[in-house]
Simulated scan of single mutants.
Amino acid sequence: MTETVASQQRFPLITQEALDDLRSRIGQQFDRPAPHVSEATADSIRHWALGIGDDNPLWLDPEYARNTLWGGIIAPGTFLYAFDRVVSGYVGGLPGVHAMFAGTDWQWYEPIRLGDRIEARPVLKDLLELESSFSGRSVKQTYRVSFFNQDGVLICEADSWCIRTQRDVARERATREAVEPRVWSPQEIADIDRHYAQYRRRGATPRYWEDVEVGEALPTMLKGPSTVTSFVCFTQGWGSLYVKAHGPAFEMFRKHPALGIPNDLGVPEPPERVHWDSELARAVGVPAAYDYGPERISWLGHLMTDWIGDDGFLNRLNVQVRRHNIIGDLTTCGGTVTGKRVEDGKHLVEVAVAGTNQRGEQTAVGTAIATLPSKSG
């Protein structure tokens, strides 16, 4: 079989010189691409919410939202992924070395309200050298991103990290374990459709802290089966990292030559196309095109906000992305209450959350903390 352009491409390895140069930037501010969103408008909130499959009227319906505790439309906390490229996986340094988004630790202090203008301020926080069975030498690259609204109020802090992997090593090692995308039968699709039709969010019915029991399981939420269409839908709300067209695309490749990976036609395209191009995904060691990591973390955020109801507030969501979610995968999102406490007057619950594919593999694992209303007031 004739080798494709992507399979013949040779990519840079991680060198000590490049790593030392990147380490010198820790704690410093830096230039980065403009955000996809800078203001929480009704349109941008809607695009985000529907991009993760969340049609909660608290985000979408002004009349409904007006009659809630919040007095108007608010947005899912993970919407902040659209306000900054860094928290979404944009990484500097190590040109030509693949970046795989691996997780975010979100801490929200205030809700995102309709009309908020939000500024993100990221800094490189840490570099951790690793030895990966997937790609040999690798690096965990962590950023701290602080988000402020138009009044200068800190509404959120997030630590977000990527694993930098060596593409050629990953491709060579990946041939040992082939995973084929799942093909679903009409009956299985009907069963998935039935789940979606029967699913109910908590909504306006309060979930009181006193009624929650440690060990209680959250209702199951399905996401998928994943398709290129669903990836594109997420990208419409999130904005992507490197998707540009025509002149702006070529300008980006001139400034950052390692981003321009020739396709089969010899035309440069960004490495982000692993999310819709299975050939390039295989060239970096993944069985097929795969989803965006922030998407799965946002699904677990959706799981939590549906469970806590309109009167709850999601304080923290710390999720690690463990495996790739490839085309055809169905993710079952679930959680279990692991603790409850009163702290600084807030009635808090802690939940272990996870996303599991149809092969029984946990692709995302984390912890969530939320404030619930109390019967004591």
Rank of each mutant, 00 (worst) to 15 (best):
T229K: 08
H246F: 08
G237H: 03
H246R: 07
F234K: 01
G247I: 04
V228Q: 01
L241H: 09
T227H: 05
S240L: 07
F253A: 15
T235Y: 02
E251R: 13
V232Y: 01
F234D: 02
E251M: 14
F253E: 14
H256L: 02
A245I: 01
F250D: 09
P248F: 15
G237P: 15
L241M: 11
R254M: 06
S230P: 15
S240E: 07
S240I: 00
H246Q: 06
F250G: 10
M252K: 09
F231Q: 13
E251Q: 07
P225L: 14
G237L: 03
Q236H: 09
C233I: 03
V243T: 06
F234P: 12
F234L: 00
S230E: 05
E251S: 13
V228Y: 05
F234Y: 15
Q236W: 11
T227V: 14
Q236S: 11
F250S: 12
H246T: 05
K255W: 03
L241V: 04
G239C: 12
H246K: 09
P225G: 05
G247T: 07
L241D: 11
H246A: 06
H256Y: 13
P225W: 00
Y242L: 01
K223L: 01
M221A: 14
G224V: 01
K255E: 15
A245Q: 12
R254G: 14
K223S: 10
A245P: 04
Q236F: 03
L222Y: 13
C233M: 06
S240Q: 12
M252C: 09
H246N: 03
F231N: 12
C233L: 09
K223R: 15
H256N: 10
G237Q: 02
G247V: 06
S230I: 12
S226Y: 14
K255R: 08
P225V: 00
V228P: 02
F234V: 00
T227S: 15
T227N: 15
F234R: 01
